[in-house]
């Protein structure tokens, strides 16, 4: 990890409008939690709001963070200024990941835990478990979307389709998709830690953790490898 790159990436993240959008996403989830807590029965509300945070808000924060720290620089070629340095390309990938990961934890996973706590203050352990589960899923999402940003100019669109179609729609219709759903792996971890009466997903925690490590590690490596092969092309 390189501290200078971490600093630059954080500035890239919050020095642009995207930083405001990230704050708004986190704020919206917490605002919704407060609103639903005031207006509805707590048990129904917890599931709905936490579900929303897990399946939409947190993945979106991860998507926007990961693509913000790398996507624009790759798209316009200005990443060449960072790459023309005696710094390993995998170190650059890990530093970019760290900046995006920090934002995902702070504005994606933490709000999920806080939303659960706001809606059901009597179960802080469950809120913490949900936070840990969100952190696991957020870590994988961040690494996955960072690799997308390194591989394609359309990372935001592809990432949105992944979150909305694969994780959202298909994941809720076909039970088999859960085995390949990042959100489901996070929920499996949360379920194991909080031991609810009814598990949210039917995925073993052992599989979920291994799958999360493999996908996060693998996609992070792909990002570094893509940066190693970055080519500078003119308009000619």
């Amino acid at each position: 990890m390189n501290r200078t790159l971490l600093r630059l990436s954080t500035q890239a993240l919050f020095g642009r409008r995207r930083g405001v959008v990230l704050l708004l996403l986190a704020g919206a989830l917490l605002g919704l939690a407060v609103l639903v807590r005031l207006l509805t029965d707590e048990e129904v509300g917890v599931l709905a709001v936490v579900g929303l945070g897990f399946t939409l808000a947190m993945p979106l924060v991860a998507l926007l963070s990961a693509t913000a720290v790398l996507g624009p620089e790759i798209d316009d070629g200005s990443v060449v200024y960072l790459l023309a340095k005696p710094v390993g390309r995998h170190v650059i990938a890990r530093s970019k990941f760290a900046a995006a990961w920090g934002a995902t934890m702070l504005l994606g996973a933490l709000p999920v835990a806080l939303a659960a706590l706001v809606m059901d203050p009597s179960h802080p352990a469950r809120a913490a478990a949900l936070g840990v589960g969100a952190a696991v899923a957020g870590t994988v999402y961040t690494a996955l979307f960072l690799a997308l940003a390194a591989l394609t100019r359309h990372a935001v669109v592809v990432g949105l389709l992944f979150v909305l179609v694969w994780e959202g729609v298909l994941g809720s219709i076909f039970t088999g998709v859960r085995w390949l759903s990042v959100g489901a792996w996070g929920r499996a971890v949360a379920d194991t830690l909080s031991a609810p009466a009814e598990a949210a997903v039917n995925v073993s925690v052992g599989y979920a953790v291994v799958a999360a490590i493999v996908v996060a590690g693998g996609t992070l490596w792909i990002t570094g490898d893509r940066l190693r092969s970055f080519t500078l092309r003119g308009d000619e």
Binding site: Q11, A12, V80, Y81, A84, P86
Partner: peptide, 22 residues
Amino acid sequence: RHTDAYRTIGLVPERELSFGYL
């Protein structure tokens, strides 16, 4: 793929600087 070469090379690409926030 020889990153140590950048200790010797200084590169001024035609690409614009997009680090407007710095």
